[in-house]
Design a protein around this nucleic acid. Structure first.
Lengths: 113, 113
DNA sequence: CGGTATCCTTCGCGATACTG
DNA sequence: CAGTATCGCGAAGGATACCG
C-alpha cells in the first residue's frame, strides 16, 4: 500500500497502512484465533490466496502491528501474534467496527424478511 | 467500493465501506470541523478533487454514516453531518487510529533526529 | 507447511471540462 | 457553490507454479 507525501492528519497514516482489502480481517483472525499458523489463517479467511496472505502479513510485521515466532524442527510451524502496544490499539478500533457491522447485517436480515 | 459475496466476519463489511483512500479523512474532517460545507471540506483535505470528494460523500450518505442539509436560496450552501448512531461509532474507532498515528509520527521524528 | 516468483487483470482514483 | 460526465492510468490484488 502506497503512502503519500502529505497528510491531513495522523489518522490518515494508519488508514493508509490498513486500507488494503485483507489487513484488518487478518489481524482480527489472529486475535480471535489466538496466535494461529499460516495455514490456519488461510482456512479461516474466505477467499484469500496464500501469496496475498503472506504479502499482507509481511507489511503488518514491518509496521510492528503483528509479530511471529517459528518453532524449530519439522513439521514447520509458525505462530502469528498481535503486538501488545500497537497491534492491540488497532484491535480496539476493530471491535467497534465489528459491533457496527453486526448492526448493518441485522438490518439487512430484517429487511429481507 | 465493491462489496464481496462472502464475509469472514461483520467487521469486514464495515471495512469494505470505509476502505477507500478518502472516506475516513472525510468523516474525520466533518466531525472535527463541525458540519462543514463542500468547499470547506475540499480546502481542508489536501489533494482531493471535488469529483472524488462528492463521490465518496454520496457513498457515506448511502450507508447513513453521514447526512446533509441544504439551506434554501443563494448562495447555495450545504452542511454535512456525522450521523449520531452509525457515524459516531466510526468516529470512536477513528479516534483510536488518530492516537496511534501520532505515536508513529513521533517515532519517525525521534529517528530522524 | 511456509515462503517466493511471474504474469495478468481490474477498478479505484485522478484530470478535466461542463451544468444549474 | 454544489454537482455531473467522460476518459484513462496504475497499483492492488488474483492465478499459478515452484522451492526448502
Amino acid at each position: 500500500m502506497k503512502l503519500r507525501k502529505e497528510y491531513t492528519c495522523p489518522l490518515e497514516f494508519i488508514h493508509d497502512i490498513l486500507r488494503g482489502k485483507w489487513k484488518t480481517v487478518i489481524m482480527w483472525q489472529i486475535y480471535y484465533r489466538k496466535n494461529p499458523s499460516l495455514s490456519q489463517l488461510q482456512k479461516d479467511i474466505k477467499g484469500i490466496s496464500q501469496k496475498i496472505l503472506l504479502e499482507q502479513l509481511n507489511e503488518l510485521l514491518e509496521y510492528k502491528l503483528v509479530s511471529k515466532e517459528k518453532s524449530l524442527g519439522y513439521p514447520l510451524n509458525v505462530q502469528y501474534y498481535i503486538t501488545n502496544d500497537k497491534g492491540m490499539k488497532v484491535i480496539e478500533a476493530l471491535k467497534i467496527y465489528q459491533k457496527l457491522g453486526e448492526i448493518y447485517l441485522d438490518e439487512l436480515k430484517s429487511i429481507s424478511k
